[in-house]
Design a protein around this nucleic acid. Sequence first.
DNA 1: TATCCGTGGCA
DNA 2: TTGCCAAGGAT
Length: 299
Amino acid sequence: METRNTTAGTVNPTELIEWFDATARPLPWRAPDVTGWGVLVSETMLQQTPVARVQPIWEEWMARWPRPSDLAAASQAEVLRAWGKLGYPRRALRLHQAAATIAADHGDVVPADVDTLLALPGIGAYTARAVAAFAYGRRAPVVDTNVRRVVARAVHGAGDAGPPSTNRDLADVDALLPTADAEAARMSAALMELGQVVCTVRSPVCDRCPIAHDCAWQHAGRPAYAGPPKKVQKFAGTDRQVRGKLLDVLRGTEGPVTREQLDAVWSDAGQRDRCLDSLLVDGLLEQTDDGRFALPGEH
DNA sequence: TATCCGTGGCA
DNA sequence: TTGCCAAGGAT
């Protein structure tokens, strides 16, 4: 028998996990035969990037580079082209570096230990715990934007999460997880799924929420978000847009391009040059001996 | 801690 | 049309 908790601000792991077992989307990286490498690639691609855009690219990468050593053997240019327009291409370079370290130092197997994962480039507090939990069934508080929102509502009764604070957020979620590894890992996946498909930012579907009866936000009458205003980053006209346009020229051509070809994508010469320099500094571009520009490692 | 780093869909 | 924002990380 199970007791039905009716205290606002608590989360019953069993209810959440049963809901997840019954409704989870069959995302390809959730298949039982997916390796730690497959999970790491998916989590890296999913950083700030919607599922629908990641899915086809992830399939291509798994077919082309099924092990870390396979990716490590590719050139940076190949990796950046295969990354396509997922955005934040530095993620691709860091994943490439991480793959090389995993191949060289970890027997070509993605580590399961959070601290070991954190030492790899491009793997931060979220990704390290996501890999430990989803790939290896470990108990690790997985905190992403969805989980933060679920906790803000269900536990704290707020309309949305305030500014992130890694240690506090980790402690909040850690307090919710059951002791056992497998159950805790399942609950972490369930919390994320709940935030993505039910407890959404704009129009949460509380009618379909498995824990609505315990939700502090429900009990408080679903008050509006009262925290500090969220900061929205501009994009049009920023260096991010210019860098994206410059890199897109290189992705779309075979070999090196001339400065004139790059000059064509943005009229502000000062900003253009600054962005070109920053791409070189970031290792996303290289300059050839004859002064042209190329993706790294392809000339 | 605040800011920077791409891209595209959607209300 | 445009602001919002989507499984963050590094500095």
